[in-house]
Write a protein that binds this DNA or RNA. Structure first.
Lengths: 130, 130, 130, 130
DNA sequence: GTGGTCTAGACCACC
DNA sequence: GTGGTCTAGACCACA
């Protein structure tokens, strides 16, 4: 099974699923056009309710990550060009600043932080735009 | 007023306040020992409920960012040494990986991502450990 | 091939086919009495299931757009006079109001909307009643 | 009660609610900042389940029509500038073409169609951009 | 009090 | 078989 959920994680179950699918797409474990497990199947595998998986899949469809339509199995969607570049960049920056602040307060130096970022990105983005 | 809340930001109001105090401490606008605005005062200034500010201050106290005792004004706490280094690093890395995945799916290349990280960190960490 | 299906279009496949046949009849690419592709032939060409094309053809027959009898090829039916004029107009108006609302919420002005409508109609209704 | 649902309408209940809220915003019956009925309250009023209204509200939030956050009542959001103009226009045009084809097949002439469009738009867009 | 999540089970539409 | 909708009722998090 590619995916799993963690009861102790404070994030909603459906969001954990969303995140893991995204990660799998980005690092190449799932390629464009590849089929995802069915909602019932994945729900069984994860030990969660059908609707929880369903909600995750709908979010992924709304984000353009997967093709999801009634009667057909879910598939990884073809990449679509981004809309507002500026807006995207600012959103990402805000999220990074937040983590950077937390890191600093936890005693992580700027150098250590940079190293962590590099390690996090390296080898994790096989499916990402170069 | 140092702080503000954003109606459009989907995060809880108390979390926005927590984040802004953290940011202010990290970038040096608030130094160790400095007093924070009173709960009522800040609630008025932000146009939010007393409970909301109170909750934010409690979270900040729980994180060791501020000293908060009844009858006394809130102050920025002295930095305390980090507990589990390994654990801290892994938590940060997980959060960065998540953002990196979102960025990749939004069409941001690895190079652009690195540049955004640098810009986010630079000049924002005056109060951070070097 | 006159027709095609779009994987990204959220509408059911059979509905896409229905719509394209309607469009072809209206703009004159298909005339009254002209034969349509066979069910198997079209299903192959589109890469969809036989059932899907079959369902589309049944809907078209139910709407009086085509003649469909067992053992004979499907043909574009002769135009039949409308049943309830008032009812028809109101249905169309309701659907337009819905689009107009979406357009307005997406920042399209009334003038722009009118221009889009004109462009959409112009040159697309060669087979329509004048 | 501003809203209602129709059992005979083939569209999902939650979508009917979404549409009606949009219409109310566009024609000025709901202004920016105005509060919407609570999910439970509206569900009672419409005779539907709480979750159905909840889903409608979440869709409206995802579309940027309303501000919706835990603990606070739902409000009509401030208008936000559109992202991709070209894409928006094409989507609208496609939907109009579809209606135009249906209209033509139902015996509506081009002139009648234009008149219907004008009537549909006139007086219905008080809250729309001019 | 508000919205948000999860479970459970029924039934429908599409392929 | 697939996903999509609706109902029902419990419990949680925010304000």
């Amino acid at each position: 099974m590619l995916f799993s959920v963690d009861e102790k994680d404070p994030r909603p179950l459906y969001e954990q699923i969303v995140m893991q699918v995204k990660a799998a797409v980005v690092d190449g474990r799932l390629s464009v056009g590849e089929i995802l497990p069915g909602v019932r199947e994945l729900a069984d595998g994860l030990g969660v309710n059908l609707h929880t998986v369903h909600k995750a899949y709908q979010r992924l469809r709304d984000s353009g990550i997967i093709d999801l339509r009634i009667g057909r199995r879910a598939r990884v969607a073809a990449r679509t060009p981004p809309a507002g570049k500026r807006e995207v960049d600012r959103t990402i920056m805000r999220r990074i600043e937040e983590i950077a602040a937390d890191a600093a307060l936890l005693g992580v130096s700027r150098q250590e932080f940079s190293r962590i970022v590099e390690r996090a990105v390296a080898g994790k983005l096989k499916g990402a735009p170069s």
